[in-house]
Amino acid sequence: MSKFLENKISDEELVKLYLETQSDVYFNAMYSRFSKKIYSKCLFLLKDQERAADATQDVFMKIILNLGKFSGKSKFGTWVYSITYNYCIDLIRKNKKQRNLFDNELDSIAEPIQDVSDAELLEIKVSRLKIILNKIPEGDKIVLLMKYQSDMSIKEIAESLNKSESAIKMKLKRAKHKAYLMHQELFVN
């Protein structure tokens, strides 16, 4: 049964089965599919194992309590990660007493932005990428993770962060530019 659940059933079907039966079997299958990725995202954003473990627990309870609200418009994974990112964003905001991670003052300054291709960004070595992501602003890091780690579309990121698609496109462009500059500064020059 568990092998069957691991491989054959889509996430969306699994949710449907859990809602219909409330069975622990389906709950455990959901937990084993998503808990590690939720924890990994929380850990990378919160940078503390204890806080990340607590956040994973809270995010999972949020998911279970709101499962009935999952409309199926997006993939279930996208919905799960959207909840995870938003939960971590709230924690970071509270911690830094920063009201909005995505309205950076510096972003409003007209500065020339280089168009960095996806290929340029994706060929950065993993060890370097980790350092770069930890040096750029949190908001930039989050949009890059949403796009390239969680495979969320511009529309999905915009809906998740309650921003317009054009604002997200611009944010992503700036984030890629900052990551590229940081790479040049730390590893090339």
Binding site: L43, F44, V126, K130
Partner: peptide
């Protein structure tokens, strides 16, 4: 590389 980073993070500190 973003997904590889996620895997590395998990290997380094499991759930």
């Amino acid at each position: 590389n973003f997904k590889k980073l996620e895997e590395e993070e998990l290997r380094g500190s499991p759930l």
